[in-house]
Amino acid sequence: MSDWLSQAWTVARKDLLLEFRTRTAIVSALVFTALVLTVFNFGRDPTAVPTIDLAPTILWVTFTFAAMLTMNRAFQLELENDALEGLLASPLSRTSLYWGKLLANLVFVALVEAVGLPLFVLFFNVPVAAVLLPLVGVIALATLGFVAVGTLFGALVIRTRFAELLLVVILLPFLIPPLAGAVQVTAGLLGGRPLSESAGWLRLLAAYDIAFVTLATLLFPFTVDE
């Protein structure tokens, strides 16, 4: 394993260990996911709009906000005893630090999605069995993009007051492209249409991932260095 990736994994492993020991963000995100899906389930009139039309939006709005809860935590835990300063004074490269946080955030968000998807199926009774594999692929593609941006902005706002609120405010506009793409592709899949019909949206999601993972990697040092 190359050195920067090995260092990134060291950071990610530490974050995972801390989170699984304290369960602060993951439990909040899981409870939030269950509550939002419950509210959507009971807070709508199923006779007014067909479930299948609403379901993709509900799924992605839930995933997006639940992901924000976990992404907020990534740099908050570095504020304890100013561990961030220790990281920045160490030989750890800024790229490794960013990728470590990105990897840990991806694991947390994937966990929330892994629990959220069955709950979504349970509440909304949507037929996912036949399209499970492409649906998981779309979720992975969209998640990578918005976690990449969220990890960057998480570092940007962490030393500000109201960091949690600020993250949501500055992050949401950047999430519109992957969110739109993910909703469209999910709607196509749940509606039984072939994946090829969503090729344009899939290309958008892939381009967003490449662009924002690259940009975030390049810009990250400017967010943490004094």
Binding site: K14, L18, N81, A83, E85, G86, L87, A89, S90, P91
Partner: peptide, 19 residues
């Protein structure tokens, strides 16, 4: 030797409380 040659003790401990 750069950063790798430095031992840094700042105002805070830089330790993770739950480790």
């Amino acid at each position: 030797g750069g950063r790798g040659a430095i031992g840094w003790i700042g105002h805070q401990s830089h330790l993770y409380g739950h480790l």
